[in-house]
Nucleic acid binder design. Structure first.
Length: 98
DNA sequence: GGCATGACTACTT
DNA sequence: AAAGTAGCCATGC
């Protein structure tokens, strides 16, 4: 497997600032992954030490089995949610644009 | 190599 | 809003 890609994804997820969120697609793009599915795979394997709760789906909804955990953890960081859906237009992570 | 699975996304109906 | 279809690609058998 591509360990470089594996670490890139981890670094990117770890770089998500507190109080913000990012989509799998964003992580994939920033990490250089060709598909967001690889992001989910990395988190599933070694994301246990990462702020995975800041990673959401493109709709602002978390992964099904994490729906409760995501919402609870994000609440701790001040990220409000609506019926289990986060407002990406409000909390989406914006990398330092200079 | 082929088949099935998965923390996904976009398009169409 | 919800369901169906296509694209994506690494992992395990």
């Amino acid at each position: 497997m591509d360990e470089e890609l594996h670490e890139r994804v981890r670094d990117t997820v770890a770089a998500i600032p507190e109080g913000t969120v990012a989509t799998y697609g964003d992580i994939a793009a920033l990490a250089g992954a060709s598909t967001p599915r690889l992001v989910g795979r990395v988190l599933g394997e070694d994301g246990h030490d990462l702020p995975w709760h800041r990673v959401l789906r493109a709709d602002g909804t978390p992964a099904k089995h994490l729906r409760e955990e995501q919402c609870a953890r994000l609440l701790e960081e001040g990220v409000m949610s609506r019926n289990g859906r986060v407002d990406l237009t409000r909390y989406r992570w914006r990398p330092e644009r200079g």
